[in-house]
Design a binder for these strands. Structure first.
Length: 502
RNA sequence: CGGGGAGUAGCGCAGCUCGGUAGCGCACCUGCUUUGGGAGCAGGAGGCCGCGGGUUCAAAUCCCGUCUCCCCGACCA
């Protein structure tokens, strides 16, 4: 019996059996999203979008405190705007969706065909540096207008060859911050500050430990002088770039001529930055925290943190049990896990067997599921299932619920971060020092990150990429000083994080 | 775009070799039983067997074409 229950709770396949397929199974089983209707595009379902909305809420709060204001720019960008920055064009040209017509007509066969070509085709934004730059040009006259700190929440389109739900989709949701500064130092400081915001968001809210660092030239954002990244390691050892922040120098200022009257009475170009996180983060949550029973959502970003499952037996008790659940919900919602973030509690009273409802929430990764029946009410206690420890139910007296739950959720949040951190620290390798060791390590399909010196030559990057599909994820900030012989060629270099990536 | 695999009920699959008009498990609906820790029995609904053409008395099955999806690479948040 127990064996049967245990066996059937597992997803097919398990992580060990086939990680990529497991990932897709979780996304489906947890009702996060579907790839449907259009190749590479997602239908994001409430439980998946809800996570993104929590991320969004938190991020808006943080950038609001930093003085960033939200704006919205058009989905379409004139081709002429895109054309202005050479590196930018080169970087995005291959994946741009282009709108060339503005009408459909029926042909002789009764098929709808595009008609009425546009004078100037427009592209669907792959990112908005160019169009926002064109506006900033008009909004910035003086150094007194700086810094200008803008952000937008938007969808963008990059026509990808190989889509993966959440991780790499043709259309995705993101925020893109765009700032303009009087000085180089101001812009650089901004990009580093946002980079740190991302690191903190990943660790604290998503319970994902990341390696902050700088991208090598080969992985820089098209048009950027410097790109900073937070790199997360999935359970299969592969990297996900979980957030990026770019110091754009004056590249976009030049191409859009964003100039201002400076303090000396002269004319200067602004220095700009851009930074973004996307719905990819939802995929990272799945791949970092998921287990063979399904998803595990960190409480701070869970659309519902506590799910109350009333047990109905078709008798007189049902109404009493349901009302008790509603009362618990009301009371729990007066409490907070973090200041200002009141608990999100759901009563799942759908007409389903209680066990089915419970397992559905386990699959979806709700942090805490509490079943409530008449017997519990009589005894004055309920038993809670915490998603990070399914084996051990937690007995809580009903009177203590609202006091106990914030702490329980904090504990779950902390334990998810601790597990992910332990996994990263246990698997990341600092002892790979030469090509033989490098090869031996990356022959394993689930090989984790290697931290080892790199001589800074593109040739060595190419060797790693061609032979093992390994790239330099970043030059980490915290070990940047450690020098040594390049792990590929032996020439002196500085420490880099090597790994396969999504 | 290269190399593999696969399209049959909502999900997972069998049937195809050897043509005979569609099945299993889960889910769903109804009834009865059971009753707080992934219930049992009985009944039921649900399919242009990816699409188009061909062969044939007859095609899920054979032939040709085509589309789509998945996995592994190259490109990327």
């Amino acid at each position: 019996m127990a064996e049967k229950a245990k066996k059937s709770s597992k997803l097919t396949p398990t992580r060990a059996e086939n990680f990529p397929e497991w990932y897709q199974a979780v996304v489906k089983a947890a009702d996060l999203a579907e790839m449907k209707h259009v190749r590479g595009c997602m239908v994001i379902r409430p439980w998946g979008l809800g996570m993104w909305e929590q991320i969004r809420r938190r991020f808006d709060e943080v950038i609001g405190e930093l003085g960033v204001e939200n704006v919205y720019f058009p989905l379409f960008i004139p081709l002429s705007y895109i054309q202005k920055e050479a590196d930018h064009v080169a970087g995005f040209a291959k994946e741009m969706a282009v709108v060339t017509h503005h009408r459909l007509e029926l042909d002789e066969a009764g098929q709808l065909v595009p008609a009425a070509p546009l004078n100037e085709p427009v592209v669907v934004r792959p990112t908005s540096e160019t169009i926002i730059g064109e506006s900033m040009k008009g909004w910035i006259d003086s150094y007194r207008d700086l810094p200008m700190l803008l952000n937008q929440w938007a969808n963008v389109v990059r026509w990808e060859m190989r889509p993966r739900v959440f991780l790499r989709t043709t259309e995705f949701l993101w925020q893109e911050g765009h700032t303009a500064h009087e000085t180089e130092a101001g812009a650089l400081a901004e990009s580093l500050q946002m980079h740190e915001v991302y690191r903190e968001l990943a660790a604290t809210w998503l319970a994902i430990p990341v390696i902050p660092g700088e991208k090598p030239a080969s992985e820089r954002f098209p048009g950027a002088e410097r790109s900073f990244t937070i790199e997360a390691m999935m359970q299969d050892g592969k990297a996900v770039q979980a957030g990026t922040s770019h110091f754009l120098g004056q590249n976009f200022a030049k191409s859009a001529d964003i100039a201002f009257s400076d303090r000396d009475g002269g004319r200067s170009l602004v220095w700009t930055t851009s930074w973004g996180i996307s719905t990819r983060l939802v995929g990272a949550v799945v791949m970092v925290h998921g287990d063979d029973d399904g998803l595990r959502v960190p409480p701070l970003v869970a659309p519902s943190q506590v799910v109350l499952v009333p047990i109905a037996r078709g008798g007189e008790d049902d109404a009493r049990v349901l009302e008790a659940c509603r009362e618990m919900k009301r009371e729990l919602e007066t409490r907070s896990m973090k200041p200002g973030v009141t608990l999100r509690v759901r009563v799942d009273a759908r007409d389903r067997r209680s066990v089915d409802r419970r397992w559905e929430w386990v699959r979806k990764g709700a942090p805490v599921v509490i079943e409530v029946g008449a017997r519990d009410l009589d005894q004055g206690t309920v038993s809670a299932i915490r998603r990070d420890d399914l084996e051990n139910r937690v007995e809580i007296s009903i009177g203590d619920l609202s006091a106990a739950l914030p702490a329980l959720l904090e504990d779950i949040q902390a334990s998810l971060l601790a597990q992910a951190t332990t996994d990263l620290e246990r698997r990341i390798r600092y002892d790979v020092v030469d090509l033989a060791g490098f090869e031996a390590h990356f022959e394993e399909p689930d090989a984790a990150f290697v931290v080892a010196p790199w001589c800074s030559s593109p040739e060595c990057e190419t060797v790693a990429a061609d032979r093992w599909s390994v790239s330099i994820r970043c030059i980490p900030f915290d070990r940047a000083g450690e020098a040594g012989p390049c792990v590929i060629c032996g020439v002196a270099g500085e420490s880099a994080v090597w790994g396969r990536s999504y």
